[in-house]
Design a binder for these strands. Structure first.
Lengths: 113, 113
DNA sequence: ACTAACTACAACCATATGGTTGTACGTTAA
DNA sequence: TTAACGTACAACCATATGGTTGTAGTTAGT
């Protein structure tokens, strides 16, 4: 069962918005297989450290990643559950779509009654 | 098999960006089960017709919906394939995650060798 | 104790976004 | 044919976004 629940619209907005940027998707993917520090991440992109730091902050606010202090470094890892949440909402849309298809089937291919 | 392909980053940005707004998600869901005109949609939201029209345009640019002229009306319907595309990318992320988990399993629970 | 590395954050800028109102134009109905 | 309807689009506004540079605080290494 797909739960739509009381999750705030704003929370979903942030979730999808965070995914709507190539640099952030790249950071997210990297953090799926590694646990890079912010500066290790920054070294990979052709932009300032501060810019990457902002992208990380957007992902963090969206709940897609979390940071863990390790000495002077901040290690970035993904929040898998949160990533799944985006997928669940899309699955919910899918289910609405399928329901419609089923209804059309009922009209075109009546079985009961 | 999840296809990442040559789809432009910008195209994916538009796709997720379009989903990052409550009004647009609502329009999308409505257009999954109905084929409303733009003005029918506009009547449902507490904003101007032009504002709704803009949201529809964003969804259309993202490829999530299409409009079909019917006399003076523009009927809106969803592009299911495009919606699936968003889900596929998330599944791709999932697969990377699972791969990592498998690798961890290999380390923690070696079977071969 | 110093210095370099890593991070945080403020200030600033250009552009994008989400909303508004107003105008114009094709289509339908009386 | 005229009036109302549905749409398109321009102009405008406030705020958000994505980037920059600069300053400052911690932590690590020598």
């Amino acid at each position: 069962m797909v739960v739509v629940s009381k999750e705030s619209e704003e929370s979903l907005n942030q979730l999808f918005r965070a995914l709507a940027d190539g640099t952030r998707r790249s950071i997210l993917v990297r953090s799926l297989t590694e646990t890079p520090s912010v500066s290790e991440l920054a070294a990979r992109y052709a932009m300032s450290f501060a810019a990457v730091q902002k992208h990380v902050a957007v992902l963090e606010r969206a709940g897609l990643i979390q940071k863990r202090a390790n000495g002077r470094e901040q290690l970035v890892s993904t929040n898998h559950a949160r990533l799944q949440r985006a997928g669940e909402l899309l699955e919910y849309f899918e289910s609405i779509w399928r329901q419609r298809m089923t209804q059309l089937d009922d009209i075109l291919l009546p079985k009961g009654k």
